[in-house]
Simulated scan of single mutants.
Amino acid sequence: MAGPSTEIVRKPRADAVRNRERVLEAAKAVFSAGGSEASLEAVARQAGVGIGTLYRHFPTREALFEAVYRREVEQLGDLAEQLQCAPEPVEALRRWMRANVEFVATKKGMISALALVAHGSTELHAYSFDRLTKAIGTLLARAVAAGEIRGDISAEDVLRALIGMCYMHDQPGWQATALRLLDVFVDGLRLRPAGKPPAAKPARKKAARKPAR
């Protein structure tokens, strides 16, 4: 008596997996740079694959956008896990936030290069915000527990502040501005050691009074 039919799920071939990863890495580099050269053809050239190979993995521009976007979010989540063992909690938090600025640059470049006026996937936005909030939450909680960061700010607050810094403007050089603001923001979250007074302002020199005649 014949048993129930079973569907055999074939794993992707190793070369197909490598090609897909090369395309995703190339797309990140090409779209981050932006400009008129940021096309799907440029991605294929950068990855060293034919345009047909690219389309087999990513049949639409939106599919490529989502794949790169999800990959970047997952890598930020993995980075947060790695940084939990870093010796300095505040610097671990700062390093993760700086990596997020690079992620936003990739996202901005893709939207511009692929002519995506607005990526309307509510599920994708919800997924990324939840994943990134959890990632930054672990690093923030560690810095608070170490007594180095104030405890009256949430992971959502920090992430929204970071997003605001990155989207203040789209002029050339925006990343340098965002990174500078990020450093000011993180330093502002630091706690002073107990009993340590604020730094004294230098005393002004009094002007010499002329002797009365």
Rank of each mutant, 00 (worst) to 15 (best):
M168C: 02
I149V: 15
P12R: 14
R70K: 11
D15W: 01
P197V: 00
G48C: 06
V104Y: 04
A27R: 05
G164C: 01
L116N: 02
K108C: 03
L139G: 06
R209T: 10
W96K: 06
L189K: 01
P198V: 06
A105L: 06
A80G: 13
K134V: 01
R190E: 10
A47K: 14
L140W: 08
A212P: 04
L83K: 14
P172N: 05
G52L: 04
L181H: 00
I163V: 10
L140N: 09
A80D: 10
R56G: 10
A29Y: 01
K134C: 04
A146R: 07
L159F: 10
F31R: 04
K28N: 11
A178Q: 02
L40I: 11
A115S: 07
G77S: 13
I149N: 03
G50K: 13
Y127Q: 02
Y55I: 01
E21N: 10
L162E: 09
A194S: 13
A44K: 02
S39L: 04
Y167S: 05
G120W: 03
I153S: 02
Y167L: 00
V144L: 10
T53L: 11
Y69N: 11
L179C: 02
A105F: 01
G188S: 12
K107N: 04
A16L: 07
G195I: 09
Q175W: 01
V101I: 13
A126E: 13
H119A: 05
G50S: 15
L140V: 05
A16C: 05
L139C: 00
E81Y: 02
D152S: 09
R209N: 05
A29Q: 14
V101L: 11
T53C: 10
G147Q: 04
R95Q: 12
R204E: 14
A42W: 01
E37H: 06
